[in-house]
Design a protein around this nucleic acid. Structure first.
Lengths: 217, 217
DNA sequence: ACAAAAATTAAACAACCGTTTAATTTAAAC
DNA sequence: GTTTAAATTAAACGGTTGTTTAATTTTTGT
């Protein structure tokens, strides 16, 4: 009669329809927020029946959980691969920044949701998954910096947990104020906007982190 | 019969009850978002009748507008005063950072709303007010950096519009991930959290910006 | 081809939403 | 003290919300 739903985090079975719902949900959540998006909105855009969301995911809340898992699962892997690469410390940091920016750039929607919907109230389950992701990321950053410190290239008094806020925070603040910067920097097309991120903004962040890591005052 | 409501931005008449509503609205908006907060929530916490919000502000949307004006009106003044002060360029930048952090720290709630509720759809009026604020802020930053460049203390190839994202973005990302950093840095009390911001985080940002402004590679 | 499972649907559910109304109480003006 | 305006209230408005139901269609396994 009814399908066996996965209550665990390992939501393996993602058929086409589920993915379709997740993609639409991400788009709408990022545009109008979690509370601002109705299941009727989602079902209309995904061209499915209203009941299908509850049928597949159980509830709107669990749809959000599934979305988070779906969109963050492979970032961890990407960072661990970087760790193994044979690069100069500063090159590794630069690549780390590129990975972050590219990753968030491709998932702007979910990232916005992650930061603003998850910390509230009883979204504890989603929250724990997100916290674990951040802890893993921090471990990767720590070991990259440690490599540079061991080689004597990086300062030893950097507060490593504050590096991520500077990297992601800078990019995120830029993106959150997109209309402002689009006007200010005259970025007429979406392509120009994305290109500015990929070149100037990325370079700015890399320059910032490098200066912070090697500059002696 | 009915009061003359101010449709203009200069919403001067803020009696105690209006302010009470605004304070409650800020708290709830920041906790649960704009859409996630109902007028019934607000009226219950502010201990007033449901109809009073519409009576005073016209609508939930205009309540948000009033909240933005109310909470951002004096930041501009603070920055312009800083501009006139007789300080070394680097000291001025440090103080600028302190002002930003302190200002956002005191208005964490509205800042969250500002970034995540305002860019959507037809909140154009609120949006324009916010954009004007940002333009003014940027002008202040530009002239402070220009002073330092004229004195030969700062590099001349800094992209000034990207400084604010780094300053505010770093702080904001930290604050948005408060539960994560509270656990990581063992900040047991609210006081310890605020103290960490006032000391370590502020210092980190000042160090970052300084390195970026003076470091030659 | 047939039976069981899964997918899909329209309809209904109660709860809540922002806003308005109309009546009443409180305060201000003269 | 009376009149007029402002503040406050409970109730109702129509609409939307997330979720469930029960019936139907489609797919799957044998």
């Amino acid at each position: 009669m009814y399908p066996v739903r996965n209550n665990t985090m390992s939501n393996i079975e993602l058929n086409d329809k589920k993915i379709q719902i997740l993609e639409v949900a991400e788009k709408l959540f990022s545009e109008k927020g979690f509370e601002g998006t109705s299941i009727r909105d989602i079902s209309k855009h995904a061209k499915i029946n209203i009941a299908m969301v509850s049928y597949y995911f159980g509830s709107k809340e669990r749809l959000l959980e599934a979305l988070i898992i779906y969109k963050t699962s492979d970032l961890k892997l990407q960072l661990e691969n970087l760790l193994q690469e044979n690069l100069e410390p500063i090159e590794k940091v630069n690549k780390l920044i590129e990975i972050y920016i590219n990753r968030i750039s491709c998932n702007k929607g979910i990232f916005r949701v992650l930061h603003f919907e998850i910390n509230s109230e009883k979204r504890e389950k989603s929250m724990i998954a997100f916290t674990e992701l951040k802890k893993g990321n921090l471990k990767s950053v720590e070991s990259i910096i440690a490599q540079g410190q061991a080689k004597g290239v990086f300062r030893k008094d950097v507060i490593i947990p504050l590096l991520t806020p500077t990297i992601i925070g800078t990019f995120f603040h830029f993106h959150m104020n997109k209309p402002f910067f689009v006007e200010l920097l005259n970025l007429k097309t979406e392509e120009m906007y994305n290109n500015y991120i990929k070149t100037s903004l990325t370079k700015h962040i890399q320059q910032t982190i490098k200066a912070l890591l090697v500059y002696e005052n």
